[in-house]
């Protein structure tokens, strides 16, 4: 099937931006790509979710290359959280297939709104504690902080809670085609006491598996339009490469603030979209 060149270019540039922001914030890009495809291109949300899984998989692999190379990814932690996340993703993907598009959009908006509020509360209440972190109270780990050129120590806490909550994250990942970074990053950062950079890198690594599971289920049900897969792969790859390089030089506070702003905007758009209210249409 022939597709218009301009359409391919729009998809390519949208994927590039989604990949860059996604990688910058460890979100996989799905929370940008799904709303972009539905809001800008009037694509049915189920198709957008199917394509988003592919984009998230590219983004995850691409940014993981940079994070692993720099020793930020906590591979053992990802291994612990992956099983719950993958099972949750299967449940979520099958639920999404039998859920109405408007309901999915509203759920998308609510989930993102909650995440933004949660992260905002965290920056207001934790401040110094967030930077110093709780030490000597769990499994000790460390990583090299590029912006300060120092090794940062942290203690891994509440593993059991992390595993249970990661399966909830997996459900939302499969349900909304978002990879799950939007849930996994706060779980690791807030509950397991993992610094946000390590949380972002580890989340990027593990969402490869959750998005692949979602991709296979949506592909099996005919919700992946192969014609526009290529520009999404190209855009997400180069976007993710740029995003993960920008991430290395940014401070934890700035990253968190960008995360909150992006998530609030998308939450609002998806919620109004689900209710059928047209706001600031581009």
């Amino acid at each position: 099937m022939r597709v218009e060149i301009l359409f391919l270019l729009y998809i390519l540039s949208t994927s590039f931006i989604a990949g860059m922001i996604g990688s910058l914030l460890g979100l996989g890009g799905g929370i940008i790509l799904v709303p972009a495809l539905t809001i800008l291109f009037d694509m049915p949300i189920h198709e957008a979710i199917g394509l988003s899984f592919i984009g998230v998989l590219v983004n995850s692999s691409s940014s993981s290359l940079v994070y692993i190379k720099n020793g930020i990814t906590d591979i053992r932690l990802s291994s612990i959280l992956e099983i719950g996340a993958v099972i949750g993703s299967i449940v979520g993907a099958y639920t999404a297939l039998s859920t109405d598009s408007n309901v999915l959009s509203i759920i998308f908006g609510i989930v993102l709104g909650y995440v933004a509020i949660d992260m905002y509360r965290k920056t207001r209440t934790m401040k110094e504690n967030d930077i110093k972190r709780e030490l000597n109270s769990g499994e000790e780990r460390e990583y090299f902080e590029e912006s300060t050129k120092k090794m940062v120590k942290y203690s891994l806490l509440r593993k059991k809670e992390g595993i249970i909550l990661s399966s909830v994250g997996g459900i939302f990942a499969g349900l909304l085609g978002v990879g799950g970074g939007v849930i996994f990053v706060p779980i690791m950062n807030r509950i397991m006491n993992v610094p946000i950079k390590v949380a972002i890198a580890t989340s990027s690594f593990m969402i490869g598996a959750t998005s692949l599971v979602g991709m296979l289920i949506f592909f099996n049900n005919g919700f992946i339009d192969a014609v526009i897969v290529s520009p999404i792969i190209i855009g997400m790859f180069f976007g993710a490469q740029l995003g993960s390089r920008i991430n290395m030089g940014l401070t934890e506070k700035l990253l968190t603030n960008i995360f909150i702003l992006v998530v609030i905007y998308i939450a609002f758009r998806m919620f109004t979209n689900g209710l059928g209210i047209e706001v600031f249409n581009i």
Partner: peptide, 16 residues
């Protein structure tokens, strides 16, 4: 990833 990107680029070039 390189294989995937190369195939995608080739596919888009052929398409456009």
């Amino acid at each position: 990833l390189m294989i995937s990107i190369t195939m995608s680029i080739a596919s888009v070039i052929i398409e456009i």
